[in-house]
Write a protein that binds this DNA or RNA. Structure first.
Length: 607
RNA sequence: GGUUCCGUAGCUCAGUUGGAUAGAGCAACUGCCUUCUAAGCAGUAGGUCUUUGGUUCGAAUCCAAACGGAAUCACCA
């Protein structure tokens, strides 16, 4: 049960009444029961009871020396008499429920409408850098990457709305042994095919050879094992693996032919990724490439060696001892002098700081790398880097299939491009079936199907708490009804339609003389929710969680639809009531649009 | 085996400093389109919150143990 504390809006009437209510209850406890400095916390009143704020009196029974309902009754009477904004109270066991006076609701609505900066928190005057996506250039993107990209983009949007200056970065892992694997397989089996000769999107073409390498590698291992070689040794002794390692060394030494192959294949992959990113709707301020940062990483290793933070073993490999931190020894440079994953991360961290000077840095990377980031952050601290204290690993859960984890090498993945295309196609079918698309041009229809399909997909992936692993069943299509993106989009379109009609009828829905107007519960609840917007942004930013926003957007849409079905809005005969409702509808539509903006989801005006 | 995380309705998920009869959506069933978009609304049914102990006026929530699952402990990234 949340405590229901609204904030964010300066002088928001509901925030004020909430504070006043707390003070009044404290005063009641003092005057009636001689309880000093009571820690009074209010909660939202549960839906099935009348009221807005609830005070739980159980904790005070001993001190008050009275049964809970009697305490509640006495406090209720005291507050009712002393606080104008409270219109009534009800006691249910030890729960004291307060209802707010109509004037408070009226003031709250007016305040919402007049807020000059309704959808952003005050600037925190702080830069925060967020790294997400971070693909490997040896295979196409899959469903796991979609979660990463949507999450990273959304968290960036949320932090921005939360008052930070946000820099979005992408670290492309474009070098390393895994890249050499697809290069080598292509060299052996590619027969010169290219994206244009094969008609295969570049990233998919390269991915094909990554899978081919793994297949050949496994075959060779089997042969070795059949010859009696120890399976562990077979892993490193398979000829094709040794060739890949040789290729990596050649790459680091600048071998012209290897570099040329690498550049060509990376180009294929990256142009493929660009198309995928465009379809996802994600953007970056700066793209880093591991091939440009690993040397800086090596330099940092040298520095660390000199300062004694790192040490060298007999075989020339370089390590750090993190046993004092509760971890173990960790390799930072191979014996052959080539860099490992964490080497380049040190370089990238340094480069980012030089480029932007942000003290805070968020890494959106799956929870399978928890240990890696723990190590990295410890290393940066031991190196006494100025950017070593604001690091946060946004560790999100894997997307699992019913059969278990997705594995690129084994081909058990849901491809990102395919899935997005399927979602758009499903949107097309659903929308066509419903037949509400008269007057749309072909281009408008395509845009709509994209917005709906991607909206459904993004919402589906973002509504789950990022930290938790989630399940995707390819056999069950993602819903367009219920707690989904299209449901919220639909509510938005419905509101837009109504506002359009109001304008056509030249209705100017100004709020005047509404002070004595009694609002029904559904209207009050909607005002309450709209007043929570900034609090939710703050919460989502603090938790790095778009799920907070999806839940909020759903609550708002749900509440509006409830109101929509209960009363007439545009057709309400009482002009004051009609204007109140149109104002509410208008604010609801804008709030949904803004909230969805934070999720990277577009809100169509018609659908 | 060590470390970390998780176990809530048939399925997918909410449930933030402990509070009322544990909530949504999907799937099932019942109603509601001569009025503002039915991708909607209202309702029925569905639960030993994995189990057992403990703390407390009160536990899905905190503590301990057991059981079940996942990740990680690479000179892969």
């Amino acid at each position: 049960m949340r405590n229901g504390y609204l904030y964010g809006l300066f002088d928001f009437p509901m925030t004020r009444i909430q504070d006043e209510l707390i003070t009044s209850i404290q005063s009641a406890l003092l005057n009636l029961f001689q309880i000093e400095n009571a820690d009074v916390v209010l909660q939202e009143t549960k839906k099935e009871f009348e009221g807005t704020f609830t005070f739980v009196v159980f904790p005070f029974t001993k001190q008050a020396g009275m049964a809970p309902p009697q305490i509640a009754q006495k406090i209720g009477e005291y507050v009712l008499e002393n606080l104008h904004g409270i219109s009534k109270f009800q006691v249910v066991q030890g729960f004291l429920n307060f209802s707010l006076a109509d004037i408070i609701w009226a003031e709250a609505l007016i305040s919402l409408q007049n807020d000059p900066k309704p959808y952003h928190l005050a600037s925190k005057n702080e830069k925060i850098l967020i790294e997400y996506s971070s693909p490997n250039t040896n295979k196409p993107l899959h469903l796991g990457h979609l979660r990463n990209n949507f999450l990273g983009f959304s968290v960036a949007q949320i932090l921005q709305a939360g008052g930070y200056e946000v820099i979005k970065t992408n670290l492309v892992n474009d070098r390393g042994i895994h890249i050499c694997k697809s290069m080598l397989a292509y060299q052996k089996m590619g027969q010169g095919e290219t994206p244009s000769t094969s008609g295969i999107k570049g990233d998919h073409l390269v991915g094909k050879y990554y899978v081919a390498f793994d297949k050949a590698y496994k075959a060779e291992m089997e042969v070795l094992i059949a010859q009696g070689v120890d399976p562990e040794k077979a892993k490193s002794q398979a000829p094709i693996m040794m060739e890949a390692q040789a290729m990596l060394l050649a790459w680091e030494q600048g071998d012209a032919e290897v570099i040329r192959l690498w550049e060509m294949m990376n180009e294929w992959v990256l142009s493929g990724f660009e198309k995928s990113y465009a379809q996802m709707g994600v953007r970056f301020d700066k793209i880093y490439r591991e091939s440009n940062t690993y040397l800086l990483g090596k330099k940092i290793v040298d520095e660390g060696l000199q300062s004694g933070t790192f040490f060298k073993k007999e075989d020339q490999s370089v390590w750090i001892n993190l046993e004092a931190e509760g971890l173990d020894e960790k390799l930072v440079l191979r014996k052959d002098g080539t860099s490992v994953y964490i080497t380049q991360d040190m370089g990238t961290a340094q480069l980012k700081f030089e480029d932007f000077g942000a003290k805070k840095s968020v890494y959106v990377v799956g929870n399978e790398q928890d240990y890696h980031f723990e190590v990295l952050f410890h290393i940066l601290k031991k190196l006494q880097k100025p950017y070593s204290f604001g690091n946060y690993h946004l560790s999100y859960g894997m997307v699992d299939l019913p059969s278990g984890k997705m594995k690129s090498r084994e081909g058990t993945v849901v491809d990102a491009d395919d899935l997005m295309a399927e979602m758009v196609q499903t949107a097309r079918e659903r929308t066509t079936e419903l037949g509400k698309i008269e007057g749309f041009s072909a281009a408008e229809l395509d845009a709509l199907f994209n917005q709906l399909g991607l909206g459904a997909l993004k919402y589906f992936l973002l509504k789950v708490d990022p930290k938790k692993r989630m399940l995707f069943n390819p056999l069950e299509s993602i819903d367009f009804q219920g707690n989904t993106g299209p449901f919220v989009q639909y509510t938005h379109a419905r509101i837009c339609s109504m506002i359009r009609k109001a304008k056509e009828q030249a209705i100017d829905f100004q709020l005047e003389n509404m002070n004595e107007t009694e609002l029904i519960a559904s209207e009050q609840e909607l005002i309450y929710l709209l007043g929570m917007y900034k609090a939710r942004i703050e919460e989502a930013a603090a938790q790095y969680s778009p799920a907070v926003i999806t839940q909020y957007a759903y609550d708002v849409a749900k509440q509006f639809n409830k109101l929509y079905n209960e009363v007439s809005i545009l057709n309400e005969e009482n002009a004051i009531k009609r204007n109140i409702r149109l104002t509410l509808a208008d604010l609801t539509g804008k709030t949904i649009r803004e909230a969805f903006e934070l999720l990277g989801i577009q809100s169509p005006e018609r659908m």
